[in-house]
Design a protein around this nucleic acid. Sequence first.
DNA 1: ATTATAGTTGACCTTTACGTAAAGGTCAAT
DNA 2: ATTGACCTTTACGTAAAGGTCAACTATAAT
Lengths: 132, 132
Amino acid sequence: MTEKTYSISELSEEFSITPRTLRFYEDQKLIAPTRRGQTRVYSKKDRARLAWILRGKRVGFTISDMGKLLDLYYLEGGKVKQREAGLQGCRERIKTLERQKKDIDETLKELRDIIDMFKSWEPYPGQDNIKI
Amino acid sequence: MTEKTYSISELSEEFSITPRTLRFYEDQKLIAPTRRGQTRVYSKKDRARLAWILRGKRVGFTISDMGKLLDLYYLEGGKVKQREAGLQGCRERIKTLERQKKDIDETLKELRDIIDMFKSWEPYPGQDNIKI
DNA sequence: ATTATAGTTGACCTTTACGTAAAGGTCAAT
DNA sequence: ATTGACCTTTACGTAAAGGTCAACTATAAT
């Protein structure tokens, strides 16, 4: 059974990014698709890595951050020190993410306040300008 | 009673940013401190705006995003269309923030899995290298 | 055979968010 | 009056994350 593979455009469409982005990630050593000739062939594993990278990006990590994380994740055997550093790194990331969650909750609250403020200013029928 | 004010360095230290950053935000019309001579004097209100901007930044908004949001917030009277746009903008931001929260939760879960993985590799006493 | 469709590698361009001098003003303390 | 601390503007520099050509190549379809 041959595993499913993806072309660069399939993958970029699926994740709403451009092929350029995928090539860029490869350039930055985040993904290493195999080649058939000189054409990139992405595996399921590559696809999973990509999903990880993009999610990391959405929550504020840089792509090089994600590169390091992925390396840790796929680390098969390594020195103790590397693993310790990995653990430390993970813990720090968890902390910043938890802070971000708090920030988001507070920002959400304020956004909803703004919406309420807007609503309480609803114009009267027939009126399309409000002056104070 | 004269309200409390802050110097550029007070404020930048409090929020762990550089004075350059504050001047930059002013350049971008995000904050408009008053002046005593040519020296910037920040009010409580300025400080609040700054806190907003920085929180927005932490959760992934650009500073120009935050500028627009602040304008909406401090909007005193305006056309209906502006307010409608403001409402729409807020709703969109709320959506992306909620998505980000989900992303964060999933990322947190995976980070914790990685940590568990690391832990299960704990070396035996006296051993400081693991090979596979 | 030629056209269309994907793919490739450069190389340079752009935006965001500041950093980093350079060059000097202001004011309090010595 | 000079030092030091803090402030100012102007202006060029930079890193991150791609965008945007341009010039080819490979393969499939007509």
